[in-house]
C-alpha cells in the first residue's frame, strides 16, 4: 500500500533520514518507535509532503508521490495528524472538523463521518460550539484525530498521539486508534511511548539517528532485549 525506498531527507546540513525503507500493508497498524530526534516526525512529514526527500522514493499503491504537494497527497487518501496536535485554536470544534473535510464535497458522507467522530469521542460533540483553544490537552488530541478522520483517509499517520496525556487518556486514545483500524483504516503510528504502541501494533520498526535498526512483528520487537533496554525501561 505504502512503500518508502531508501529515503534521504536533509534539513540544511543535517542528514535527518539516512536511507529509510519501509512498507505499510492494508489494514495494518505499523508502529514506528525511536528516541527523541531519531527522525520519526521527519518520516511522516516526508510522506505527507511537508518536507521533500533529497533522494529515494515514496510509492502509494505503487505510484510515486514524493513530488506531490501536500494537498494532493491528502486527496489521495493519506492524512497526517501532526505532532503537537496543531488544531485551529481560534475556531470552534465544529469548524476544525469541517476543515478536516476540506477536500470533500459529499455532504451526506461528511455528516455521517462527523457522527462517527462524535461517536468515537462523545466529548467533542458536547464541545461542538466551543473554541478549540479552550479544550484540554486530551480533548485537543481527540479533535486532531477526529479532524484527520474527517478527510476519510485510507492511511492515517499519527505522530505521538499520547504525548503529554495522563495515563487514563492515553489508554482511551490507544483504544480508539484500534477501533479506527478495525473499521478499515490503515495506521502508521509514531510513538515515544513504545510500550503501548507496540502492544497495539501489528508490525514495528525501530528508528535510531535517522536509520532503521530493527523491523518485525510488534511482539518480537517488544521482546527484543536491546529494545527493552533502550525504549521500554528494562
Amino acid at each position: 500500500m505504502l512503500e518508502l525506498q531508501d529515503l534521504h531527507v536533509y534539513y540544511g546540513g543535517i542528514h535527518a533520514l539516512k536511507g529509510i525503507s519501509l512498507v505499510v500493508e492494508p489494514a495494518e497498524i505499523v508502529t514506528l518507535i525511536g528516541a527523541n530526534g531519531a527522525g520519526k516526525s521527519t518520516t511522516l512529514r516526508a510522506i505527507s509532503g511537508l518536507v521533500r526527500a533529497r533522494s529515494g522514493k515514496i510509492l502509494w499503491d505503487g505510484k510515486p508521490i514524493h513530488g506531490l504537494r501536500a494537498d494532493d497527497i491528502v486527496a489521495r487518501g493519506i492524512v497526517h495528524v501532526p505532532e503537537g496536535r496543531r488544531i485551529f485554536a481560534t475556531m470552534t470544534v465544529r469548524e476544525n472538523l469541517d476543515l478536516g473535510a476540506y477536500l470533500r464535497r459529499d455532504r451526506r458522507g461528511i455528516e455521517a463521518d462527523r457522527e462517527m467522530v462524535y461517536h468515537l469521542f462523545p466529548r467533542l460533540k458536547e464541545r461542538e460550539r466551543q473554541l478549540a483553544g479552550t479544550l484540554s490537552g486530551g480533548e485537543q488530541q481527540m479533535l486532531a484525530i477526529g479532524r484527520g478522520l474527517m478527510a476519510k483517509p485510507r492511511l492515517l499517520l499519527l505522530d505521538e498521539p499520547s504525548m503529554g496525556l495522563a495515563p487514563l487518556l492515553v489508554a482511551e486514545i490507544f483504544r480508539v486508534i484500534q477501533e479506527i483500524n478495525k473499521a478499515g483504516t490503515t495506521i502508521l503510528l509514531v510513538e515515544q511511548n513504545a510500550n503501548q504502541a507496540l502492544r497495539i501494533g501489528h508490525r514495528a520498526y525501530v528508528l535510531q539517528s535517522g536509520e532503521l535498526v530493527m523491523a518485525g512483528a510488534a511482539q518480537e520487537v517488544a521482546a527484543n532485549p536491546e529494545v527493552r533496554r533502550a525504549y521500554l525501561g528494562g
Binding site: R69, D71, I87, L99, G100, Y102, R147, A151
Partner: peptide, 13 residues
Amino acid sequence: EDTEASRLMGINV
C-alpha cells in the same frame, strides 16, 4: 492561524 496544519487539511495554500 497555521499554514502547515492547513496544508495537512488538503488546503492549497
